[in-house]
Design a binder for these strands. Structure first.
Length: 757
DNA sequence: CACGTGTCCATTTTT
DNA sequence: TGGACACGTG
C-alpha cells in the first residue's frame, strides 16, 4: 500500500481507492476533502491512468491550481497534463476548439455581467420599452435561469407557461428580449457565462462526433463542490461519463450556497437515481474545528429539512465557547472586533489567523476603517475586482475589439474613449447605418468614407485605422504582451492617465501598468501553450476575485463575504452583521424565500473556524445613508445556547428580542420633518439670489492633489472659499469647502475647477 | 460635442 | 451613499 494512504481514515481510503464506476463522496466540512481528491487522482495515475484522460472540475481556478501543485508533489511533473479548472474555463477551451460547429470563431468574446447588462439596456431601449419596468438585472437573471435549465430562446417563446408568468410579472416582452439578446450575442461572436455551458450542451447534443471525442478523452471525470452545480453543468458531466461511467462527485449538501445561480441541490439528492450502482462514501469526521464549533454548527443545520443523513463529529479538543458580541452601531462593531484581533495577537496569533466574514460586500467599510485606525494590515477578497476597474476594462475592450471586430460592447466602450469627438449621436447614427445596410458595425466604421463626411467621419476613420493597425500586428503573430503594450501607448489611454496627476489618476496609471505586467507573465508562463491575445482574453474574463494574486503569505487579516470563504479555514473567525434582514438577507427571503440556503450559508461561515468563533451584531446601522434599527438575527437563537458565551465587550448581553422602537424598523420619526415632498419644496425658505462669481482673469486650475485643510481657494464658478475637510472615498478624494457666497459645498477633487491661492 | 449640475434610484451572494 | 442618467450651457 502506498505510504500516503497510511494517513487516511477508513472512509477516506475507500474513496481514494475506488477507481471504476460512479462514486459520490459526501464530504462534511473540514473532513479532508481536498486531500482525498488529490490522493485519488494520484492513485489513479499510479494505477496506470494517463493524466491526459482525467478531467477534474473545481469551483475556482485557484482551487484547481492548488490541487495541481499538490498532485505534482505526489506524482511529479506529469500532473501538468491533467485537465483541471472550472466548468467555465474548461468548456470555454473546448468551445474554442469546436465552437465553429455552432457558428462561433475561436476568437469569440466572453461577455461579463456588465457587458450583458449593458447589451440588455440597449435592447430594452431600442424596443421602446420602459427600462423601469424591465430592469436589466432582473431580465438577465431570468435569461440566465432559462439557459441554466437548458431552455433556449426558441423554447422559451414556444412555451405558453413562460409567457403567462411574464405577463403576470408585468413583463410580457421578456421572450422577445431573450430572443434579441441571444441573436445579438451571437452576431457579436460573443458568449456570456451561461452560454459557455449552454453551448457546450448544444455542441454535445448536436455533434456526436465531438461528444465522442471527449468521452474517449476523459475516461475519468471528477467534480468538486458538486452541491453547487446546476442542471446545465450536471448534464455535461453526465454526458461525458456516459461511456466510461467513471464519474466521481464530491460535495456536501449542507454547504450548497449557490442556488441563486441555478445550483440545484437536487443534483446531489438525486444522483443515486441516475447511477443505480453508485458507491457512496461519507466523510464525517471533522479534523478542522473544536468540538464546540462542530456541535454548534450541527445544531444550526439540523433545522433544515432537505438534507442527506450524516453525523459530523470531531475528536479535537472541546475548545472555547462561541462568543457573541452586541455592538451599538456598525462602527462600534468594527472597533470591537479590531480590538479583539489586537488582543488575539498579544496572545500569540498572527494576523493571517483571523478572518472577518460578512454577508454583503458593503459591510466591509466599518471593519476597514477600524483596522486601519489601529494599524492592523488586512486584505479584502472580492468586492470590485481588478478587472472591473474602468481603466482596465477600457484597455481590455481595445484588445477585445482587436481580436473580434464584431464585439459590440467593446466597440461602444472604446469608440470615443479617449475622447476623439465621436459623440452619442454619431455612434447612434453608425448603429442605424449598420442595420439599414444589413451589415456589421465594423463594416460601416472601416468604410466610413462611403457613408459620412466631415469632422466626425474623419475621427471615425482615424479610429478604424488605429484598430486596423492593431489587427495587422496581431496577424503578424505578435504576442499578447507586445500587442497590449502597443495598444496602451498608441490608443492614448495610457497618455491620458499619465497626464492626470490626481491621486486617482496616478492609481489608474499604476493599475494599467499592473495589467501589462500580468499580460507579460501570462506570455512568459510556459504552462500556457497558447500565448495569443485571444487566449489571454478568454482566460482573463473567467478569472474570479478569488483567483487574483492574493498575497496569500502576507501577514494580513482577511475580510470577505461568506461565499468567498468556501473551502478556507482560519484559527479565529468573526461572523459579523448577524441581524435580521441582513443575515438572513431579506432580499433572499423576498425573491426566493429560501431560508434554508441562508442557514447553510451560516453553517459554512461557522465551520470555517478552527479554534475560535465570534458572532457579532449591531443595534444600529447606516444603510443607504439612512439610520436603521436592527434586531438580532434569528440564527443567533438557533444555535444551541450550551455552546455560546456572551461577550464582555459592548453592551451587556440579554436577548430581549427588541430594543428598537416598535415596528418602525426602517424609519424613526423625525419631529418637524415635512411629510410630503411637495410641501417640503413649498416650505423651503427663499434663497437670496447669489451673484455669479466672475473668475479672476488669469484663471488656471491648480494641482488639486496638493490641497490641504485650511487652504484658501478660488473656484471658477463658486468664487472664494476655504477648505474645511478632506475626505477619502473609494480611491479618490472629496473636499468640503466653505465658499464665501455659496456656503459649504462638497466637491470631488478630480472635477474641481479650483485654484489654490 | 464636452462638461457641469441636478435628480432619481438601488442596493445579495458570483462563474 | 454614490452611480447612472437627463438636461442645460459653453
Amino acid at each position: 500500500m502506498k505510504d500516503y494512504l497510511a494517513g487516511l481514515n477508513e472512509p477516506q481510503r475507500e474513496a481514494v481507492t475506488h477507481i471504476d464506476g460512479p462514486l459520490m463522496i459526501i464530504a462534511g466540512a473540514g473532513s479532508g476533502k481536498t486531500r482525498v481528491l488529490t490522493y485519488r487522482i494520484a492513485y489513479l495515475i499510479e494505477k496506470g491512468v494517463d493524466p491526459f484522460n482525467i478531467l477534474a472540475l473545481t469551483f475556482t481556478n485557484k482551487a484547481a491550481e492548488e490541487m495541481r501543485h499538490r498532485i505534482e508533489k505526489v506524482i511529479g511533473p506529469e500532473a501538468k497534463n491533467l485537465w483541471m479548472g472550472t466548468f467555465h474555463s474548461v468548456f470555454s477551451k473546448i468551445l474554442r476548439f469546436d465552437g465553429h460547429k455552432l457558428g462561433y470563431t475561436s476568437n469569440f468574446t466572453i461577455y461579463d455581467t456588465d457587458d450583458s447588462k449593458s447589451l440588455l439596456r440597449s435592447i430594452i431601449k431600442e424596443m421602446g420599452l420602459d427600462d423601469k419596468a424591465y430592469k436589466p438585472n432582473y431580465v438577465l437573471n431570468r435569461i440566465s435561469a432559462a439557459k441554466n435549465n437548458l431552455i433556449s430562446w426558441q423554447m422559451y417563446n414556444e412555451n405558453p407557461s413562460f409567457a403567462a408568468e411574464d405577463i403576470a410579472a408585468q413583463m410580457p416582452e421578456l421572450g422577445r428580449i431573450y430572443k434579441t439578446y441571444a441573436l445579438r450575442c451571437f452576431s457579436a461572436n460573443a458568449m456570456d457565462f451561461d452560454d459557455l455551458l449552454f453551448n457546450t450542451n448544444v455542441l454535445f447534443r448536436d455533434h456526436l462526433d465531438v461528444l465522442n471525442k471527449y468521452q474517449h478523452k476523459f475516461r475519468h471525470v471528477m467534480v468538486d463542490e458538486f452541491q453547487d452545480t446546476n442542471i446545465s453543468q450536471y448534464l455535461i458531466t453526465r454526458k461525458l461519463a456516459a461511456v466510461s461511467q467513471n464519474i466521481c462527485v464530491v460535495g456536501d449538501d449542507a454547504q450548497s450556497i449557490y442556488a441563486f445561480r441555478g445550483a440545484n441541490i437536487q443534483n446531489i439528492l438525486n444522483f443515486k437515481k441516475d447511477y443505480p450502482d453508485l458507491k457512496v462514501v461519507k466523510l464525517e469526521q471533522n479534523y478542522r474545528s473544536t468540538k464546540n464549533i462542530v456541535n454548534a454548527a450541527n445544531s444550526v443545520i439540523a433545522k433544515n429539512k432537505a438534507q442527506l443523513e450524516k453525523n459530523i463529529f470531531s475528536d479535537n479538543e472541546e475548545g472555547e465557547k462561541i462568543e457573541v458580541i452586541r455592538a451599538m452601531s456598525d462602527n462600534e462593531e468594527g472597533r470591537l472586533i479590531a480590538h479583539e484581533i489586537f488582543e488575539g495577537r498579544l496572545r500569540g496569533l498572527k494576523n493571517s489567523d483571523f478572518a472577518i466574514l460578512y454577508r454583503t460586500n458593503a459591510q466591509s467599510r466599518a471593519f476597514e476603517e477600524a483596522l486601519r485606525k489601529i494599524d492592523i494590515p488586512y486584505r479584502i477578497i472580492g468586492g470590485l475586482s481588478f478587472y472591473q476597474r474602468k481603466e482596465i476594462k477600457d484597455i481590455l475592450a481595445y484588445l477585445r475589439f482587436t481580436v473580434n471586430q464584431q464585439d459590440e460592447e467593446a466597440f461602444k466602450r472604446i469608440i470615443n474613449t479617449p475622447k476623439r469627438g465621436i459623440g452619442d449621436t454619431s455612434v447612434a447614427k453608425i448603429i442605424v447605418l449598420a442595420s439599414e445596410h444589413q451589415t456589421s458595425i465594423w463594416n460601416i466604421v472601416s468604410n466610413i468614407q462611403f457613408y459620412m463626411e466631415g469632422r466626425t467621419a474623419n475621427a471615425v476613420a482615424g479610429f478604424a485605422d488605429l484598430i486596423k493597425s492593431y489587427t495587422v500586428m496581431m496577424e503578424e503573430g505578435k504576442d499578447a504582451h507586445t500587442l497590449a503594450m502597443h495598444v496602451a501607448k498608441t490608443s492614448g489611454l495610457l497618455h491620458e492617465l499619465y497626464m492626470d496627476k490626481t491621486v486617482e489618476g496616478v492609481a489608474r496609471h499604476e493599475n494599467v501598468q499592473e495589467l501589462l505586467n500580468s499580460i507579460r507573465s501570462f506570455v512568459d508562463n510556459d504552462e500556457n501553450e497558447d500565448k495569443s491575445l485571444s487566449s489571454f482574453l478568454q482566460t482573463v474574463s473567467l478569472l474570479t476575485t478569488a483567483d487574483e494574486d492574493d498575497d496569500g503569505d502576507a501577514e494580513k487579516v482577511t475580510l470577505m463575504t461568506i461565499h468567498g470563504a468556501k473551502g478556507l479555514e482560519f484559527k479565529h473567525v468573526f461572523v459579523v452583521g448577524l441581524e435580521e434582514n441582513l443575515f438572513p438577507s431579506q432580499m433572499m427571503l423576498k425573491s426566493r424565500d429560501d431560508l434554508e440556503e441562508e442557514r447553510r450559508l451560516f453553517y459554512v461561515a461557522i465551520t470555517r473556524a478552527e479554534k475560535q468563533l465570534t458572532l457579532s451584531y449591531a443595534q444600529q446601522r447606516y444603510t443607504w445613508g439612512k439610520l436603521t434599527y436592527c434586531e438580532p438575527s434569528r440564527f443567533l437563537e438557533e444555535i444551541d445556547s450550551r455552546y455560546l458565551r456572551f461577550g464582555d465587550k459592548g453592551i451587556p448581553q440579554t436577548f430581549e428580542p427588541s430594543f428598537a422602537p416598535k415596528k418602525q424598523a426602517t424609519r424613526p420619526v423625525v419631529i418637524g420633518e415635512p411629510v410630503k415632498r411637495a410641501s417640503a419644496n413649498a416650505l423651503k425658505p427663499v434663497q437670496p439670489p447669489v451673484q455669479a462669481h466672475v473668475p479672476s482673469a488669469d484663471f488656471e486650475p491648480s494641482d488639486t492633489s496638493k490641497l490641504k485643510v485650511g487652504d484658501k481657494v478660488e473656484h471658477q464658478k463658486f468664487g472664494f472659499g476655504e477648505v474645511k475637510k478632506l475626505e477619502a472615498f473609494s480611491g479618490s478624494t472629496k473636499a468640503h469647502i466653505l465658499f464665501e457666497r455659496e456656503g459649504e459645498k462638497t466637491l470631488l477633487l478630480s472635477f474641481a475647477k479650483l485654484r489654490i491661492l
